[in-house]
Design a binder for these strands. Sequence first.
DNA 1: AGAATTTGGAACCAATCAGTACAATACACG
DNA 2: CGTGTATTGTACTGATTGGTTCCAAATTCT
Lengths: 197, 197
Amino acid sequence: MARPREFDTQDAIKKATAVFWEKGFLEASLPDLLDGMGLTRGSLYKAFKDKKNLFLLVLEHYEEEAVGAAKARLADAQVPDGRARILSLFAALCAAVAAGDTRGCLLCSAAAGFEMSDPEIAEAVEKGMRGIRDGFEAALRASATHRALPDTERKALANVLLTHYIGLRVLARSRMPLGILEQSVESVARLLDMEPV
Amino acid sequence: MARPREFDTQDAIKKATAVFWEKGFLEASLPDLLDGMGLTRGSLYKAFKDKKNLFLLVLEHYEEEAVGAAKARLADAQVPDGRARILSLFAALCAAVAAGDTRGCLLCSAAAGFEMSDPEIAEAVEKGMRGIRDGFEAALRASATHRALPDTERKALANVLLTHYIGLRVLARSRMPLGILEQSVESVARLLDMEPV
DNA sequence: AGAATTTGGAACCAATCAGTACAATACACG
DNA sequence: CGTGTATTGTACTGATTGGTTCCAAATTCT
C-alpha cells in the first residue's frame, strides 16, 4: 500500500550513536548527524521526532550494545573467577585506548557534561551507570575472594569499581598518556586482592 | 591619560570561572558570560580577546585556585600522615556534594567533553591533571605506609588515585545518589591500607 | 496500470551563535 | 579647562543552530 522505509531504523540509530559518541549530544549538530546517518532532515524528523528523542534512543542502544558488552564480560562463564573478569574488563579498556579508540564512554561524557540538566537524559544515563555497577556487583559475587563479603561491603566495592571505571574512561577520552591508565589498572588490581576486613 | 577599566580583571576571570564551571566551555554562551561577569561584549573582547582565550585564562585561574586548594590539602603539614591527607581530600569532595555542590571538576568535565579536540585546551587540562596526580604522589611520599614504596609503585598508586578522583568528580556532577560516592571513598581507603607487595 | 502513501531533499524559519565596528563616554594629564 | 586616549555600550555581521513545511518522486497494493 505504501512506500517502505529505505533505511534500517536500527542501523540509523547505530550510526547516530557513533556521532553522539564522538561529539556528545550538545556538540553534535544536525548536519553532523545527517552526514553520519546518511539521511536527510525530513527523514530524520519523520522517523525520530527530534534530536533529543534520537539521543534517548541512542542512549538505549548504547546501553544494550556497549554496556551490555561490558556486563557480558563481567558475567563471562568461561572466566571462572569474578575478580579475573573485572580485571579483564579494565584490561580491555586499556587495550581499546592503545588501539586508538579515544572516544571514552558515551554515558560518562554525558554524565560529566551539561546534558545532565535534562531530566530525561539524566535518568537514562543514571540507568546505564547503575547497570555497570550491578555488573561489577555480580562479578564480585562470583569472586572467590569476595563471595563471602557482607552485602554492604560488596556494594561499596562495586561502587569504587564504578568510580574507577568512569575515571578510566574519562582519562581515555582526555588523550592523556596511556601509561596512566595502565598503571591505574595495575594498582586497582590490588584493591581486589585485599582480604575482607 | 586614558579611561580606566571599570572592572577588576581577576574578579572578572573569577566570575567567568563560575559560568564555565557550571556550563562547560562550549555550552556557555557569550550572553551567559556577559551576564555572569557583569560586562558587555566590547569590554570582554577588548580585555580577553575572545571566548577561548578567556577560557584558557579561566583554566589557569582554576588550576591556581581549585587545584591549588586540593594540593594544599594533600600537603597540609597539620595532618601528619599523607594517607590521612588523601582521605581528607576525598571526604571533602563528598562533603561538597552533600552541601549541594554538583558542579564537579572543571578540568574533569572538559576532559570528558569535546573541548579536548582543541590542542591548547587539551594541554591546559592535561597540565592540571598532572598537577593533581603529583599532589597525590607527594602525599604518598609523606605516608608512613607508602614512604618506602619504590618509585614506580608509588607512581602507579598516584595514578589510580587520580583516576578515582576523576570518577568521583564526574559522579558528583551526574547528580547520582550521594551514597555511591561515600561508599566509593570508603572502599578506596582500603587501597591505602595495603601492605606494599 | 492506477490509486494510495510515504519518502527524500530543498527551501525556509526564527533564534542564536561568536565576533566586529564604531561612536559615545569618562578619566588623566598638560 | 580642554585634549588625548582607552574603555564602554550597542548596533550589526554573517554564519549556523534546531526545527518545519512543502511537494515531487518513488514504490507497493489493488
